[in-house]
Design a protein around this nucleic acid. Structure first.
Length: 232
DNA sequence: CCAGACGTTGTT
DNA sequence: GTCTGG
DNA sequence: CCAGACGTTGTT
DNA sequence: GTCTGG
């Protein structure tokens, strides 16, 4: 499950997407955040008609049967293997595929009882896009989005058995769109990214609390924490 | 993922 | 609201 | 036709 | 211990 990511270099991430699409994108009024999680609003690049545009959407799709619920269950992820056929995702997968700009994402390694956070990025801090689908606003809900997951690659596998679908400059323009994908194209686009393009490193526990939203989320395990004394 | 709650009825 | 299973 | 579901992950 | 909200 991918339930946390960071978008702290928004200009760079949107710039990379803009170049990949060959279309201009406006940077939204949005402060950098290092710990985006379910229910947060974040920039999403989606097509509305011909043009791609950036909109702030809320993370967490709400299936139809939950729409009347004042506290609906939110869907953070959709499996790439099943997204095209499941009722909750099918429509969005066919006609509302979006790009979710990111600079990195987090996963937790379960070691015994402990959960150790790791940061996953592209080499050289290359910005990227996560593959998403989105639902329009309705029933008093804002526009919402959801991230696709796929099998882990070699970088991911030691930490976690699923990973988000990461799109490159080559795959971004193929993924985004409001028309159904050709058969096989969805499969091709949601394959695990080349592990040679990725890197990971362990982090301190600060990021684990989703209330923490600042740059200290990227601190390593040995970084001093606020509110603690350093001895020696 | 973590943090925080974990409950109902009748009444004001 | 809409699809699926019975 | 109606009833019931509509989702993922982790963990064991 | 487990579920829910964020």
């Amino acid at each position: 499950m991918c339930v946390r990511y960071t978008l702290h270099k928004t200009d760079a991430a949107l710039g990379a997407i803009s170049r990949a699409l060959g279309e201009p994108l406006e940077v939204p009024d949005w402060a950098p955040r290092y710990n985006i999680t379910l229910t947060d609003f974040a920039p999403v690049v989606a097509r509305s008609g011909a043009a791609a545009a950036v909109r702030l959407m809320r993370w967490g799709l709400v299936p139809e049967n939950e729409r009347a619920n004042p506290r609906p269950r939110l869907l953070a992820n959709a499996r790439a293997e099943t997204v095209a056929s499941l009722p909750a995702f099918r429509r969005a997968a066919a006609g509302r595929r979006c790009l979710v700009p990111a600079n990195g994402f987090y996963e937790w390694l379960s070691r015994g009882t402990a959960k150790l956070p790791y940061l996953f990025t592209l080499r050289g801090e290359e910005p990227f896009a996560l593959a998403g689908i989105w639902d329009p606003a309705s029933d008093g809900l804002p526009e919402t989005y959801c991230l696709l997951t796929t099998a882990p690659n070699e970088v991911m596998a030691p930490v976690h058995d699923r990973m988000p679908v990461i799109l490159t400059a080559e795959t971004m323009p193929r993924w985004i769109g409001d028309q159904p994908l050709a058969p096989g194209e969805l499969v091709a686009l949601t394959r695990p990214i080349d592990p040679g393009l990725m890197e990971s490193r362990p982090l301190g526990r600060y990021v684990s609390n989703s209330r923490n939203q600042g740059p200290a989320c990227l601190d390593g395990p040995d970084a001093p924490r606020e509110g603690e004394f350093n001895f020696g």
